[in-house]
Amino acid sequence: MEWALRERAVRVRARVSGRLGRAEPVVVDVLLAVFSAAVSLWSVYDDDTAWPWWVYLLATAPSVPLPWRRRFPGAVLLASSLPAAVLSVVAHSVMPQVQVFAVVTIYTLADRGRNWQRLLTLVVLVVGNIVGTHSPSGALFSLVVSVGSFVFGSLVRELRRLARVEAERAEQVGLRAASDAARAVAEERARIAREMHDILAHAVSLMVIQAEAGPLVVRSDPDRAIRAFDAIADSGRDAMVQLRRVLGVLKEAGAGPELAPQPRLSELAAVVERVRASGVRVESRIEESGPAEVQAAAYRIVQEALTNTVKHAAATRVSVRVVRSGADLAVEVTDDGCGAASAQEAVSGRSGGRGLVSIRERAAACGGSAQAGPGPDGRGFTVAARLPLRA
């Protein structure tokens, strides 16, 4: 209950503050009109001639439109100038030395008027003060007051324009920053998704195959069953180690992708051994070369290619080559499995995976490329990638 009352009080204060903020310019303009009228009335009263009542009315008339000057600057200037011009003709001696209404309306038009209104007003001010004033000193004083008001209003107009430009620029910077942040979040999510996919898909695939084979040979070949269960345990432990790498980085405040411990090509030997333990013959030639990000990408590409071989290809033999070729690191995984049919299943998503897409993404992230298709003579399947060793 107390919270609701406090919230209601805040809303009431905000509403009152908003109304006061909207009312403040009107109050200022009304006070300006009163002050201008007072100056004009005092000028008539202080004159030596006893003027009739209508002269006092003419003297106050130019100040009456001032409360509307912000909304209709051109019309207010014209409405103030007409009675002032009549008063100047019939009773010039009662005109104040500084006409407050003229200063205010000229300033307002220079600040808020349209361009053609501003240009026309400036021409009329210059010509009118020079032609309509008999003495040079009087003309100079009138020009300083009137044109000075116009110049001051123009300066305020320019400051308003610059403030709008800065506000728009700040808004654009904020939008770009928000867009960059959203893009960084999306890229980081994609990176984490690739890492989790590669780690879990490889480990779970090997564990499922070994678990299916173990019960079949547990009586006829106990040693093979033991090796199968050992391979399951090794795959599980390796997956846990790699998951801790990823999750450990996520728990660190401010940690980025560059801080994540990345797998090296030297660790591929363990992956190859686990695939061998699943019953697939693996021939491998692995040369450790290149910076950490290239080695990590090559590791993941080989890991994903072997995972697809184990899951989809029904292969008996697979060849793994990771060698330096000129300025690139060449990666090639070739199997003798069922070839394009298994690849199409992996790409189309019927298997629930996105391994080949992940391979291409990893290669592209390093500035390289990857291809996948049937092996030599249309037999088996080949995944090949080239990763630049230098940026």
Rank of each mutant, 00 (worst) to 15 (best):
I199P: 11
I199Y: 13
I199N: 15
L200M: 14
L200N: 10
A201R: 08
H202V: 09
H202D: 14
H202A: 15
A203M: 05
V204N: 09
V204W: 11
S205E: 13
L206Y: 02
L206P: 01
V208L: 14
I209G: 02
I209S: 10
Q210I: 01
A211C: 14
E212L: 14
E212Q: 14
A213I: 08
A213D: 14
A213F: 10
G214Q: 12
L216N: 07
V217Q: 11
V218K: 05
R219Q: 09
R219F: 07
S220L: 05
S220T: 14
P222Y: 10
R224N: 07
R224F: 01
A225S: 14
I226F: 12
A228P: 00
D230R: 10
D230I: 02
D234Y: 05
D234K: 01
D234L: 12
S235I: 08
S235T: 05
G236V: 02
R237Y: 12
R237M: 11
R237A: 11
D238N: 11
D238W: 14
A239H: 03
A239D: 03
M240N: 09
M240K: 13
M240C: 06
V241I: 13
V241K: 15
Q242E: 15
Q242M: 14
L243N: 06
L243C: 03
R244D: 15
R244I: 09
V246C: 09
L247T: 07
V249I: 04
K251T: 07
K251Q: 14
K251Y: 13
E252L: 08
E252R: 03
A253E: 15
G254I: 04
G254T: 01
A255R: 00
G256N: 04
P257G: 09
E258Q: 05
L259Q: 13
P261K: 12
P263K: 13
P263Q: 15
P263L: 15
P263D: 10
R264G: 10
R264P: 07
R264V: 05
L265F: 08
S266I: 07
L268K: 01
L268G: 01
A270P: 00
A270W: 03
A270N: 06
V272P: 01
V272A: 08
V275N: 01
V275F: 02
V275Y: 01
A277K: 06
A277L: 08
S278Q: 00
G279I: 06
G279H: 02
V280A: 00
E283R: 00
R285H: 10
R285N: 04
R285W: 07
R285E: 13
E287I: 03
E287W: 02
E288C: 03
S289Q: 10
G290P: 06
P291R: 10
P291F: 07
P291V: 02
A292C: 01
E293L: 03
E293F: 03
E293H: 08
E293A: 08
V294R: 04
V294I: 13
V294L: 03
Q295G: 07
A296R: 08
Y299V: 04
Y299C: 07
R300L: 09
I301A: 11
V302D: 11
Q303S: 11
Q303T: 05
E304V: 06
A305L: 02
A305V: 02
T307M: 12
T307D: 04
T307C: 08
N308A: 08
